[in-house]
Design a protein around this nucleic acid. Structure first.
Lengths: 229, 229
DNA sequence: TGAGTATAGATGGTATACCATTATATTTTT
DNA sequence: AAAAATATAATGGTATACCATCTATACTCA
């Protein structure tokens, strides 16, 4: 088992990703190779390689001789991401309905039961985790690695910069309901309905997101000063 | 004007990309950092950074302490890429029909006229170029950078490993016809029709591709030996 | 005083050197 | 002769050193 986790480039990559997720690295902030490498106790080489990966994912912007800065995501960009997510989630659900893999369907159903449990306990954090798993399961069950990768990338963009949509009352219930509809359509083998249910779900998620996004869109508050690392 | 073209990492990246496109670097072949850096007269650092970019695009696979090998794409993978392309091209056409930007629509029309010209001259190479432009224009006109980027990536995967579908008689005519249908729908502002026309077009392109793909799918012939660079 | 300029420090880009791991060739052993 | 063990070479991973460019500060001069 050749675990790639002892590759430093990967460690640095994960560190920065989670730093962005936790809000330690804010949009617009620039990251210094030297300071990061010093802080993490590695050389600049793996840091630079991690930067290239982040750059390709669009999470940071790199200017020659100026370094990288954490990308800023606007409300409109979130909207655009969701437009893509809508058709891709639709495709995923459609494919899963066509494939009819019992194990995958079973997993979805299991997740839904866990979600109902969590909802009964008002365990928002668990709900959020299960929600993520639900979508990952569909992507994976589509048997299309490119779809999986692409959706992962979209999700990274969305989730790294936004607090989760589910983290507000009212939405969790509706969210569950929509998930059940998707699952039902998939189980029945109605691929067209599954696709539409998934698209409907994402459209609604976007609406909720947009209702919140203004709260978090504080472009003005972003400190443009260099190197807070 | 800070052109990024004097950054060596980018030069190396382009060199490898075009090498793969030209068939000089074949699927399964492994690439040596040292030999590439020697051949290009640069150090290993920019080569490694280029590798990371290629890795993120999925064009090469990297194994710790084993280096990178050019990814192999199978007929089935092409099919999966086209499934995604279908919904994304549909989304692009739909958005363009909604936006109704005169300049972009005009550009599409201009391209179609050029295409008719090229078709009359049986200029396959020009047709291929115009065809690419047609799709790029739609992606760009969608006003969704993520869509543009994602479709670019898919196209890279497809075009780098396959000879162009248009390069066979019969298809160019049908291709033109389908493009006209898309343009018509966009001009009329019928976004649903535009989406369907685009999806229909990609489905047909896939069919043609699949008819050819077996000819080029020679997994067995791939030399697995190391470092042909 | 303020605009322009020179200069010093910091930063990113690149090259080179060193180490760990892997692959290959050689030797040894049965 | 075949298989195992060992030595050697090649390769990728990382660290360090050097150079080019940028930024900011201080200084000059109108």
């Amino acid at each position: 088992m050749s675990d790639e986790k002892d590759i430093k480039r990967e460690q640095v990559f994960q560190y920065i990703i989670s730093g962005i997720a936790k809000g330690e690295f804010r949009a617009g902030q620039s990251l210094s190779e030297r300071h990061l490498s010093a802080k993490l106790g590695v050389s600049r080489t793996p840091v630079r390689e991690a930067f290239r990966q982040l750059e390709n994912l669009g999470l940071v912007r790199a200017e020659p001789h100026k370094g990288v800065t954490v990308s800023y995501i606007s409300a409109d960009q979130v909207r655009q991401l969701y437009l893509i997510r809508e058709v891709l989630e639709g495709l995923g659900a459609r494919l899963m309905a066509e494939i009819q893999n019992k194990d995958d369907i079973e997993k979805l159903r299991m997740l839904m039961e866990q979600a109902e449990d969590a909802a009964a306990r008002d365990d928002i954090s668990a709900l959020s985790r299960i929600n993520t798993q639900f979508h990952i399961t569909i992507a994976s069950a589509s048997n299309n690695p490119y779809l999986e990768t692409t959706m992962e990338m979209l999700q990274t963009h969305i989730s790294l910069f936004m607090s989760n949509t589910l983290a507000q009352s009212g939405r969790p219930r509706q969210n569950l309901k929509e998930h059940w509809l998707i699952l039902q359509a998939i189980e029945s083998g109605d691929s067209a309905l599954a696709e539409e249910a998934a698209k409907f779900h994402i459209r609604n998620a976007l609406k909720t997101m947009m209702r919140n996004v203004l709260t978090y869109t504080n472009k003005d508050k972003v400190v443009e000063g260099k190197h807070d690392y």
